[in-house]
Write a protein that binds this DNA or RNA. Sequence first.
RNA 1: GCUCCAGUGGAGUAGCGGCCAAACUCACGGCCCUCUCACGGCCGAGCCCCCGGUUCGAAUCCGGGCUGGAGCACCA
Length: 524
Amino acid sequence: MDAAERRERLAELAPDRLEELEADEETDDHALPDLPNAEDGEVVMRAAPNPNGPWHMGHARMPSVIGTYAERYDGEFICRFDDTDPETKRPDLDAYDAILEDIEYLGFEPDLVLKASDRMETYYEHARDLIDLGGAYTCSCPAAEFSELKANAEACPHRGKDVETIHEEFAAMVAGEYDPGEMVLRVKTDIEHKNPALRDWVAFRLIDTPHPREEAAEYRCWPMLDFQSGVDDHLTGVTHIIRGIDLQDSAKRQRFVYDYFDWEYPEVLHWGHVQLDEYNVKISTSTIKELIEAGELTGWDDPRAPTIRSLRRRGIRGQAIVDAMVELGMSTSDVDLAMSSVYANNRELIDDEANRYFLVRDRADDPAVELDVAGGPDAGHPPLHPDHEDRGTRTVPAGTVLLEASDLPADGDRVWLKGYGCVRYDADGETLEYLDDDITAVREEGVSVVHWVPAEESLETLLRTVDGDVAGHAEPAVADLAVDEMIQFERVGFVRLDAFDPEPAPSGYGPTGEEDLVTYYAHP
RNA sequence: GCUCCAGUGGAGUAGCGGCCAAACUCACGGCCCUCUCACGGCCGAGCCCCCGGUUCGAAUCCGGGCUGGAGCACCA
């Protein structure tokens, strides 16, 4: 019995049970597993980006999954910028808005946006409370010395200080009276904890470099992520935390603080890193930033960059990215994301609306060749979309035309110019002799169908791809289209129209200023 | 070294004791459709890390390996 037969049989025997089964199948259709202890309307989650640059593809996973969960549970999505290190993870002032734009493009809107650097007094207050509870102490051990003590599960001499002294020293830290490295505030955990990563970790340290945000430029005593984020998660009512495996120990560290305050720790899920195929560039904000500064990439939206902005400029919809991210699920191991699945998602979204046009590419190893068409009509009229005849046709003037060299048949053989008719190639005369428009040549005689453009009226077009720029000639009808439109260049792929009569690129990579059109290649 | 976590076809996910000689999406190969190498349809190849144990029965439970990842920062 196969599945269909079984179902039929079950419908006869126990229709109720069948309904149940089908209902299960529908509710189980979520790509993401249910959140533990989640109730509708009660879920609060946050994305906590470090604003050090626009987002790369890996970052898309957090808002995609959180946004999807927030929608599923009718919950809340907080975006909190964890910008508490003005020095080694120095925030980029443009990145705050850039990240919010990237989230919007993915199709989500945070219910609340916070900046940790606005909340310093809150952290100080909680530090003082923690000191009162005996949960923190000021420590002037040099980092290396403490590290050694910690490795041996030995307390440092500062651990037993009285609360008064700790308050005084912490106040002096806040006032900036120490130099960086001179004094820190540690959370008193368990100096003999079997996991050395959890022993008396640093909650506040001193940084002389002013924060780039004017509002926060005067602060010198900065909280570490585990303290800041732990306090904020509780204060903002976060119920479910999702974070990377690099922060596996964070929850365990933060629990010590939560225990002192008698707070309940949120549910935590971890996941691995996302790696992308298809790109030569390493996926990290700092690497991309360096490549841009070195001129290897022209910007965050360079088609060769694995960034959200780059995919956006290529005409890939946020939804296609979100779907791919959600399909990755919640596993804790590292995952490879195949760009082809993003492309497949996007193709499904745009195929129906994208009209078809011709582009003859002109590459070094496959140049455009110019040929006269002898005889035949003045123009071809291929449809705008094969599935939508009602959209009509475009007009592609014949006469002298361009073909991609690899599309030429052998001398004396036939080829079908799509939307025009059958021609015979004469290599000596560099001509295509028009025969007829009898489609049986294609259907029954194996004549191949190729795309072509007129040599004169076509648009000089730059096609920008992940693998570099390609020159080409787009058929005249493309001139009537608008920037931002998605079209398919037949037998080439889907592209986004980026600009007509582009300015020359200052870097030398990109448009020269001679082109009529720049397009960005999305995918096949 | 110490401490955590994970291992299902090429990629991702599902299955969590018998319905699994394992399902779905993408990729790949072939065929059909087609005036596109798009869309659509059909077919195909290919997977339970290893070894023990529990059990009538294990991809599923237990133990031990192996492999991979992460933390042990005054980074996030």
